[in-house]
Amino acid sequence: MSYSGEFLHAAPWNGSLGSANLSHGCVNLSTADAKWVYDNFLVGDVVEVTHSPKELPAWDGLGDWTVPYERYGA
């Protein structure tokens, strides 16, 4: 999701998927869910992360993809 290290990836070691935040910035997925993402996502597909204390900055290599639609034209 960013060039600085936020990724969607399999995390089979994380026994608390969906119930506890054990990540340091990445979106941890089950192996089956990670395979589905790999098989179905295309470059530019939107990933919306909610309830995170961290906001990806626009300068992180992804540019406009990290700017909410409501902020355009402001």
Results as ranks from 00 to 15, higher is better:
residue 64 D to K: 04
residue 29 L to T: 01
residue 20 A to T: 08
residue 34 A to E: 05
residue 38 Y to Q: 06
residue 20 A to K: 15
residue 68 P to W: 05
residue 15 G to A: 07
residue 56 L to P: 07
residue 58 A to G: 00
residue 25 G to D: 03
residue 37 V to E: 02
residue 19 S to T: 12
residue 10 A to H: 04
residue 8 L to M: 09
residue 45 D to M: 10
residue 11 A to L: 06
residue 2 S to V: 08
residue 6 E to F: 15
residue 7 F to P: 00
residue 72 Y to C: 01
residue 5 G to P: 01
residue 42 L to G: 03
residue 59 W to L: 10
residue 73 G to V: 01
residue 12 P to F: 09
residue 59 W to D: 11
residue 58 A to W: 14
residue 52 S to R: 15
residue 65 W to M: 13
residue 9 H to Y: 04
residue 46 V to D: 11
residue 29 L to V: 03
residue 23 S to V: 01
residue 66 T to D: 07
residue 60 D to A: 12
residue 9 H to I: 03
residue 10 A to S: 13
residue 12 P to L: 08
residue 46 V to H: 15
residue 36 W to T: 01
residue 32 A to T: 05
residue 32 A to L: 02
residue 70 E to D: 15
residue 55 E to S: 13
residue 36 W to N: 03
residue 50 T to R: 14
residue 19 S to I: 08
residue 7 F to M: 10
residue 8 L to Q: 04
residue 60 D to H: 08
residue 38 Y to V: 00
residue 49 V to A: 12
residue 59 W to G: 08
residue 60 D to T: 09
residue 30 S to T: 11
residue 72 Y to Q: 08
residue 22 L to V: 02
residue 59 W to I: 10
residue 9 H to G: 06
residue 71 R to A: 13
residue 29 L to D: 01
residue 66 T to C: 04
residue 52 S to F: 13
residue 5 G to I: 01
residue 63 G to D: 13
residue 47 V to K: 02
residue 33 D to V: 00
residue 62 L to R: 07
residue 55 E to C: 05
residue 10 A to N: 03
residue 19 S to V: 09
residue 55 E to I: 13
residue 8 L to F: 13
residue 54 K to C: 05
residue 44 G to D: 10
residue 52 S to E: 06
residue 15 G to D: 10
residue 23 S to T: 07
residue 16 S to K: 09
residue 32 A to S: 14
residue 32 A to Y: 05
residue 29 L to W: 01
residue 74 A to N: 14
residue 70 E to A: 12
residue 23 S to Y: 03
residue 14 N to Y: 01
residue 3 Y to M: 12
residue 29 L to Y: 03
residue 30 S to L: 09
residue 63 G to F: 11
residue 10 A to Y: 06
residue 74 A to M: 13
residue 5 G to L: 09
residue 39 D to Q: 12
residue 39 D to R: 12
residue 30 S to E: 02
residue 22 L to Y: 07
residue 38 Y to I: 03
residue 16 S to C: 07
residue 38 Y to N: 12
residue 59 W to S: 10
residue 17 L to G: 02
residue 3 Y to E: 15
residue 30 S to K: 05
residue 4 S to L: 07
residue 67 V to P: 00
residue 13 W to H: 06
residue 15 G to C: 05
residue 64 D to I: 07
residue 61 G to S: 10
residue 13 W to A: 03
residue 70 E to I: 06
residue 6 E to K: 15
residue 34 A to F: 11
residue 46 V to F: 14
residue 13 W to E: 14
residue 44 G to C: 05
residue 45 D to Q: 10
residue 44 G to E: 07
residue 47 V to Y: 00
residue 70 E to R: 11
residue 21 N to L: 03
residue 13 W to C: 02
residue 58 A to D: 05
residue 37 V to S: 00
residue 40 N to H: 14
residue 11 A to P: 01
residue 14 N to G: 01
residue 16 S to W: 14
residue 67 V to R: 10
residue 73 G to Q: 07
residue 14 N to P: 04
residue 16 S to N: 14
residue 12 P to Q: 09
residue 50 T to M: 13
residue 27 V to D: 04
residue 26 C to D: 06
residue 29 L to I: 06
residue 17 L to T: 00
residue 30 S to G: 09
residue 44 G to A: 08
residue 50 T to H: 15
residue 40 N to C: 06
residue 50 T to L: 15
residue 1 M to I: 08
residue 6 E to P: 11
residue 9 H to P: 02
residue 23 S to Q: 00
residue 22 L to I: 00
residue 28 N to M: 00
residue 6 E to Q: 15
residue 8 L to V: 08
residue 54 K to S: 09
residue 20 A to L: 13
residue 24 H to Y: 10
residue 27 V to N: 03
residue 18 G to R: 10
residue 48 E to T: 14
